[in-house]
């Protein structure tokens, strides 16, 4: 439609179209929606927009945030990982069982944490192997390991909780560093790290290439299999990190920890503009996605909406956000 005359100032035209395309990016649209939501919620309760409250919400979103970051990579390649919640549960149990002074292992806490991270990484690696080397679709693989890992967590724990960790262990989940909850620093580091990797490295570009056209990527020399195994392994590692932080935050281990986490993480990623079909998306979008969901949960609760009402709102926002985005993208695509 924009068959305008090219005689006038060309560079100015380019500039304005660039601004327009920037404004039409999903991240920006989402950011605007978020700001509107924050303004709206701040009217609902004067306790919402306070530093204390917002920092405290940071504690609650860290686990979902970490998992959503690695999920972004996976979804960009056109895959999915449904097993993250179960990996979290398994890792939490492993951490407890390995440390438990009255148990069979009674290892030092540091060693137990390392084993916890290793088990998570291994669990993710197994996902990757099955998907890449055996060619089983990600949805089915991780559906199977969702059951398997949760089953292992239940079996290993034998329904016993491990409690009574030393005080210094709680620093990560309940402590503060420079006035900010400790785990938020961890989340921040991983946010920057993943954002840089995805947008500034060859690896990141390869991830998009795999999502856009796997066969094409392979022909142009991208080690598709190896990269895919790497991101699923990373996803397992992130779930283990989340498990460590979770155990430190709630000071106990239970085999049902993290159930349903996968859906929250996927919702955050999708809300953040990553296409479930692969090929597009960004870490910034995901970050805005999980922050928006947490703020909605918190802000609505503070305005007096009950939990079940909040769930309804979040489901609606998810569908509407994608709908609006689709609409705008199509308009601008045609225009």
């Amino acid at each position: 439609m924009t068959t305008t005359t090219h005689t006038t100032d060309d560079s100015q035209e380019q500039m304005s179209s660039r601004i327009r395309s920037f404004l039409l990016r999903q991240e920006v649209i989402l950011l605007i929606i978020s700001l509107l939501a924050v303004m709206f919620l701040a009217f609902g309760s004067d306790r919402f927009l306070t530093t204390d409250n917002l920092l405290n919400q940071g504690r609650l979103l860290t686990e979902i945030g970490l998992v959503a970051l690695s999920m972004t990579f996976i979804i960009i390649t056109g895959g999915i990982d449904l097993s993250v919640g179960s990996i979290l549960g398994l890792c939490a149990i492993i951490l407890g069982v390995m440390w438990d002074p009255n148990g069979a292992f009674a290892l030092p806490l540091e060693v137990a944490v390392v084993i916890c991270l290793l088990v998570g990484t291994l669990a993710g690696f197994v996902n990757g192997l099955i998907i890449v080397r055996l060619g089983v679709p990600p949805l089915i693989t991780t559906l199977a390991t969702l059951a398997l890992y949760r089953g292992l967590a239940e079996g290993i724990s034998q329904a016993r909780s491990v409690r009574g960790y030393p005080e210094e262990f709680y620093v990560l989940g309940q402590g503060e560093f420079l006035g900010v909850p400790t785990q938020l620093w961890v989340l921040l580091i991983f946010c920057i790290l993943t954002a840089v990797i995805l947008s500034r490295t060859i690896f990141g570009r390869a991830i998009y290439a795999i999502g856009n056209n796997e066969l094409g990527a392979r022909f142009s020399g991208v080690p598709v299999g190896r990269y895919k195994i790497m991101i699923y392994t990373f996803s397992g590692f992130m779930a283990a990190m989340a498990a460590w932080i979770f155990v430190s935050r709630v000071s106990t281990t239970r085999s049902d920890m993290g159930s349903g986490l996968e859906l929250d993480a996927i919702a955050a990623v999708v809300l953040g503009g990553t296409s479930i079909f692969g090929g597009s998306g960004s870490i910034i979008g995901t970050i805005i996605g999980f922050i928006l969901i947490q703020l909605l949960k918190n802000g609505l609760a503070l305005s007096g909406v009950t939990t079940d009402g909040t769930i309804v709102v979040i489901g609606t926002v998810l569908i509407l956000a994608i709908l609006i985005n689709n609409f705008i993208q199509r308009r601008s695509g045609n225009g």
């Binding site: 306790r47 409250n53 405290n56 979770f246 949960k297 503070l302």
Partner: peptide, 21 residues
């Protein structure tokens, strides 16, 4: 007010919100 499933994390979040409120 409580979560729709007996889930420790959700229950903590609900209580947390009411402390703030």
């Amino acid at each position: 007010d409580a979560p729709t499933e007996a889930n420790i994390d959700d229950q903590i979040a609900v209580i947390d919100n009411y402390i703030t409120q």
